[in-house]
Amino acid sequence: MNGITFDGIFFAMVGAAIAGLACCGSAMGIGIAGQAASGVVSEDPKKFGQALLLQALPGTQGIYGLLIAFVIMNKIGLLGGSGALDLTMVQGLYILASAVPVGLVGIVSGSAQGKAAAAAIMLISKRPEEVAKGMVYTAMVETYAVLALLISFLMLNSIQL
Protein backbone atom coordinates (compact mmCIF):
# COMPACT_ATOMS: atom_id res chain seq x y z
CA MET A 1 0.00 0.00 0.00
CA ASN A 2 2.48 2.58 -1.24
CA GLY A 3 4.70 1.94 1.75
CA ILE A 4 2.05 3.08 4.23
CA THR A 5 0.71 0.35 6.47
CA PHE A 6 -2.72 0.79 7.91
CA ASP A 7 -2.33 -1.48 10.87
CA GLY A 8 -4.75 -2.13 13.70
CA ILE A 9 -3.22 0.50 15.94
CA PHE A 10 -3.84 3.14 13.31
CA PHE A 11 -7.55 2.37 13.12
CA ALA A 12 -7.85 2.18 16.88
CA MET A 13 -6.27 5.63 17.10
CA VAL A 14 -8.75 6.95 14.54
CA GLY A 15 -11.43 5.50 16.80
CA ALA A 16 -10.08 7.35 19.81
CA ALA A 17 -10.03 10.53 17.70
CA ILE A 18 -13.66 10.04 16.67
CA ALA A 19 -14.64 9.60 20.29
CA GLY A 20 -12.82 12.82 21.03
CA LEU A 21 -15.01 14.60 18.49
CA ALA A 22 -17.81 14.49 21.07
CA CYS A 23 -16.05 17.52 22.49
CA CYS A 24 -17.29 19.47 19.44
CA GLY A 25 -20.83 18.93 20.65
CA SER A 26 -20.00 20.09 24.15
CA ALA A 27 -18.15 23.12 22.84
CA MET A 28 -21.13 24.13 20.74
CA GLY A 29 -23.59 23.43 23.53
CA ILE A 30 -21.68 25.30 26.19
CA GLY A 31 -21.19 28.16 23.76
CA ILE A 32 -24.89 28.45 23.06
CA ALA A 33 -25.77 28.23 26.74
CA GLY A 34 -23.05 30.76 27.59
CA GLN A 35 -24.52 33.34 25.24
CA ALA A 36 -27.90 33.02 26.89
CA ALA A 37 -26.27 33.10 30.33
CA SER A 38 -24.43 36.35 29.63
CA GLY A 39 -27.66 37.93 28.48
CA VAL A 40 -29.47 36.93 31.65
CA VAL A 41 -26.61 37.91 33.94
CA SER A 42 -26.45 41.34 32.30
CA GLU A 43 -29.91 41.93 33.70
CA ASP A 44 -29.30 40.33 37.07
CA PRO A 45 -25.73 39.46 38.09
CA LYS A 46 -27.04 37.47 41.06
CA LYS A 47 -28.11 34.71 38.69
CA PHE A 48 -24.50 33.93 37.79
CA GLY A 49 -24.36 30.78 39.89
CA GLN A 50 -27.57 29.28 38.62
CA ALA A 51 -26.77 30.13 35.02
CA LEU A 52 -23.34 28.58 35.39
CA LEU A 53 -24.83 25.31 36.64
CA LEU A 54 -27.08 25.13 33.61
CA GLN A 55 -24.28 26.12 31.28
CA ALA A 56 -22.15 23.25 32.60
CA LEU A 57 -24.72 20.60 31.73
CA PRO A 58 -23.85 20.19 28.03
CA GLY A 59 -20.23 19.64 29.07
CA THR A 60 -20.73 15.96 29.73
CA GLN A 61 -20.67 14.85 26.09
CA GLY A 62 -17.03 15.91 25.89
CA ILE A 63 -16.32 13.98 29.06
CA TYR A 64 -17.95 10.87 27.64
CA GLY A 65 -15.85 11.25 24.50
CA LEU A 66 -12.71 11.60 26.56
CA LEU A 67 -13.77 8.58 28.57
CA ILE A 68 -14.07 6.33 25.51
CA ALA A 69 -10.88 7.72 23.98
CA PHE A 70 -9.09 7.00 27.21
CA VAL A 71 -10.46 3.48 27.45
CA ILE A 72 -9.39 2.80 23.86
CA MET A 73 -5.88 4.09 24.46
CA ASN A 74 -5.68 2.09 27.64
CA LYS A 75 -6.92 -1.02 25.89
CA ILE A 76 -4.41 -0.86 23.08
CA GLY A 77 -1.62 -0.24 25.54
CA LEU A 78 -0.71 3.31 24.57
CA LEU A 79 -0.85 4.57 28.10
CA GLY A 80 0.87 1.79 30.00
CA GLY A 81 4.62 1.54 30.09
CA SER A 82 4.69 -1.68 28.09
CA GLY A 83 4.03 -0.13 24.68
CA ALA A 84 1.28 -0.64 22.14
CA LEU A 85 -0.18 -4.07 21.51
CA ASP A 86 0.06 -5.71 18.15
CA LEU A 87 -3.44 -5.38 16.70
CA THR A 88 -4.78 -6.91 13.54
CA MET A 89 -6.50 -4.60 11.12
CA VAL A 90 -9.86 -6.20 11.93
CA GLN A 91 -9.41 -5.58 15.63
CA GLY A 92 -8.51 -1.98 14.90
CA LEU A 93 -11.63 -1.56 12.79
CA TYR A 94 -13.75 -3.04 15.56
CA ILE A 95 -12.38 -0.47 17.95
CA LEU A 96 -12.98 2.27 15.41
CA ALA A 97 -16.60 1.21 15.02
CA SER A 98 -17.15 1.17 18.76
CA ALA A 99 -16.11 4.81 19.02
CA VAL A 100 -18.63 6.05 16.46
CA PRO A 101 -21.73 6.20 18.71
CA VAL A 102 -20.21 8.36 21.40
CA GLY A 103 -18.46 10.66 18.93
CA LEU A 104 -21.37 11.18 16.56
CA VAL A 105 -24.13 11.35 19.14
CA GLY A 106 -21.95 13.59 21.27
CA ILE A 107 -21.80 16.22 18.53
CA VAL A 108 -25.54 16.27 17.95
CA SER A 109 -26.72 15.89 21.54
CA GLY A 110 -24.18 18.39 22.83
CA SER A 111 -25.48 21.18 20.69
CA ALA A 112 -29.10 20.13 21.22
CA GLN A 113 -28.55 20.10 24.96
CA GLY A 114 -26.93 23.50 24.70
CA LYS A 115 -30.12 24.87 23.18
CA ALA A 116 -32.20 23.28 25.92
CA ALA A 117 -29.81 24.74 28.50
CA ALA A 118 -30.12 28.19 26.90
CA ALA A 119 -33.88 27.95 27.15
CA ALA A 120 -33.57 26.85 30.78
CA ILE A 121 -31.39 29.88 31.44
CA MET A 122 -34.13 32.04 29.95
CA LEU A 123 -36.50 30.27 32.32
CA ILE A 124 -34.49 31.22 35.39
CA SER A 125 -34.35 34.82 34.25
CA LYS A 126 -38.07 34.99 34.91
CA ARG A 127 -38.51 32.30 37.56
CA PRO A 128 -35.25 31.59 39.37
CA GLU A 129 -37.02 29.27 41.80
CA GLU A 130 -37.72 26.82 38.98
CA VAL A 131 -34.07 26.07 38.24
CA ALA A 132 -34.55 22.38 39.00
CA LYS A 133 -37.14 21.99 36.28
CA GLY A 134 -34.86 23.67 33.78
CA MET A 135 -32.14 21.24 34.78
CA VAL A 136 -34.37 18.26 34.29
CA TYR A 137 -35.47 19.39 30.84
CA THR A 138 -31.85 19.86 29.92
CA ALA A 139 -30.86 16.51 31.35
CA MET A 140 -33.52 14.77 29.24
CA VAL A 141 -31.37 15.42 26.18
CA GLU A 142 -28.37 13.93 27.85
CA THR A 143 -30.09 10.56 28.15
CA TYR A 144 -29.12 9.85 24.56
CA ALA A 145 -25.51 10.80 25.08
CA VAL A 146 -25.54 8.43 28.05
CA LEU A 147 -26.99 5.64 25.92
CA ALA A 148 -24.40 6.25 23.20
CA LEU A 149 -21.69 6.15 25.82
CA LEU A 150 -22.99 2.83 27.07
CA ILE A 151 -23.17 1.40 23.56
CA SER A 152 -19.63 2.47 22.84
CA PHE A 153 -18.38 1.21 26.15
CA LEU A 154 -20.09 -2.16 25.94
CA MET A 155 -18.93 -2.67 22.34
CA LEU A 156 -15.42 -1.81 23.31
CA ASN A 157 -15.58 -4.00 26.34
CA SER A 158 -16.62 -7.01 24.30
CA ILE A 159 -13.74 -6.75 21.83
CA GLN A 160 -11.16 -9.40 22.66
CA LEU A 161 -7.55 -8.45 22.03
Binding site: L67, V146, L149, F153
Partner: peptide, 18 residues
Protein backbone atom coordinates in the same frame (compact mmCIF):
# COMPACT_ATOMS: atom_id res chain seq x y z
CA UNK B 1 -33.10 4.58 31.67
CA UNK B 2 -31.45 3.37 34.87
CA UNK B 3 -28.43 2.37 32.80
CA UNK B 4 -27.33 5.96 33.34
CA UNK B 5 -26.24 4.88 36.80
CA UNK B 6 -23.55 2.76 35.18
CA UNK B 7 -22.63 5.45 32.66
CA UNK B 8 -22.22 8.22 35.22
CA UNK B 9 -20.37 5.89 37.55
CA UNK B 10 -17.95 5.04 34.77
CA UNK B 11 -17.55 8.72 33.94
CA UNK B 12 -16.41 9.57 37.46
CA UNK B 13 -14.06 6.62 37.68
CA UNK B 14 -12.49 7.00 34.26
CA UNK B 15 -12.09 10.78 34.43
CA UNK B 16 -10.28 10.50 37.73
CA UNK B 17 -7.97 7.89 36.30
CA UNK B 18 -7.34 10.17 33.31
Amino acid sequence: SYSRILALGLATGVISSV
